[in-house]
């Protein structure tokens, strides 16, 4: 057999697997999004609805808009917090920074933990009767000891944000350390000699040169925040009520609990729009040509 033919044959199994596990489900979900597809009735999917699932989400579903709002807020808050913390840590950990290797290794740990584990641990830590925070505040500031963190809409949201930021800081820090290492040291020293204070060196010289990496980090984190499901599922299951229900969780609930697969598929495809926008900018920054 000729090498030309053989090399394509060798790739075929991988292509088939990708097609079966990714491409085909994608196409199917797009098809379902135009049907009435309920799992609690026979003959799946049922009637062709055209764009009715989509318009339904926009016009008649406050729960959809609630999850859009929660997801948007969640994305803005987590991206901002994670980036700021990661940038600060990266400045301390970068070559020439004030902390070094041992600490660096230790800080990677949260990223090595599975999201489920993070969720369970945070849920346990915030347990109002025997959680870590209960014990801590019991000693330090008793009025906060018996707060049911996950039962209050705002607090529950804050706890999820906290767990997510905590879990994502290490990865973003690592990427930013790499970015900082590629900022030429002599430009920083030149600025110091030229008369710039520490803050101005950062603002005028370090930050502009870090911008391409920073942009990639922000977009990447925004993509991950937009599709957050695991922390919500583990910590609050969208509650109390729907106070912490993100889009991913809303899609999950409507399709599995309420059996509305067609409608859930259409919401999932609506989510593709912001994702595409972010991915476009991500690709633009990553594959930027000078």
């Amino acid at each position: 057999m000729r090498d030309q033919t053989l090399k394509y044959l060798l790739v075929v199994p991988a292509v088939l697997v990708v097609f079966a596990t990714a491409v085909w489900p994608l196409i199917e979900s797009l098809r379902f999004s135009f049907y009435q597809g309920r799992t609690d009735r026979g003959d799946f999917p049922q009637n062709w609805l055209g764009f009715e699932n989509y318009t339904w989400a926009f016009l008649y579903e406050p729960a959809f808009w609630n999850s859009v709002w929660v997801t948007g807020l969640y994305t803005v808050v987590t991206v901002t917090l994670t980036t700021l913390f990661a940038l600060g840590l990266a400045m301390l950990l970068a070559p020439g920074g004030k902390l070094r290797s041992g600490v660096q290794t230790l800080l990677i740990l949260p990223f090595a933990m599975s999201p489920a584990l993070i969720g369970v641990s945070f849920r346990f830590m915030f347990n109002p009767e025997f959680g870590l925070f209960d014990a801590f505040f019991g000693v330090v500031f008793p009025p906060l000891a018996d707060v049911s963190w996950l039962a209050d809409p705002d607090l529950a949201f804050a706890v999820i944000v906290m767990a997510d930021v905590w879990g994502w800081i290490p990865f973003l820090t690592l990427v930013l350390i790499g970015g900082l290492a590629s900022v030429p040291q002599d430009t920083i020293e030149a600025a110091q000699v030229d008369g710039a204070s520490g803050w101005r060196v950062f603002k005028d010289v370090t930050l502009p040169q870090l911008m391409p990496v920073l942009a990639v980090v922000i977009i990447l984190k925004a993509i991950f925040s937009l599709k957050t499901f695991d922390q919500v599922f583990m910590l609050t299951n969208g509650g109390p009520g729907t106070a912490t229900q993100t889009l991913s969780h809303y899609i999950y609930i409507t399709s599995t609990r309420y059996g509305q697969v067609g409608y859930a598929a259409s919401v999932a495809w609506l989510m593709v729009i912001p994702m595409m926008v972010l991915t476009y900018f991500y690709a633009k920054f990553v594959f930027k040509k000078d």
Binding site: P184, D186, T187, E189, A190, A191, V193, D194, G195, A196, S197, R200, D204, V205, P208, Q209
Partner: peptide
């Protein structure tokens, strides 16, 4: 003091004008 570096240490994101003006600006 003013220093000239081996690898020049120019600010790549600034124009030549802004590079030269930087010590005055700060």
């Amino acid at each position: 003091v003013a220093m000239v570096f081996q690898n020049y240490g120019l600010y790549p994101h600034m124009t030549i004008f802004d590079n030269i003006a930087y010590p005055l600006k700060v």
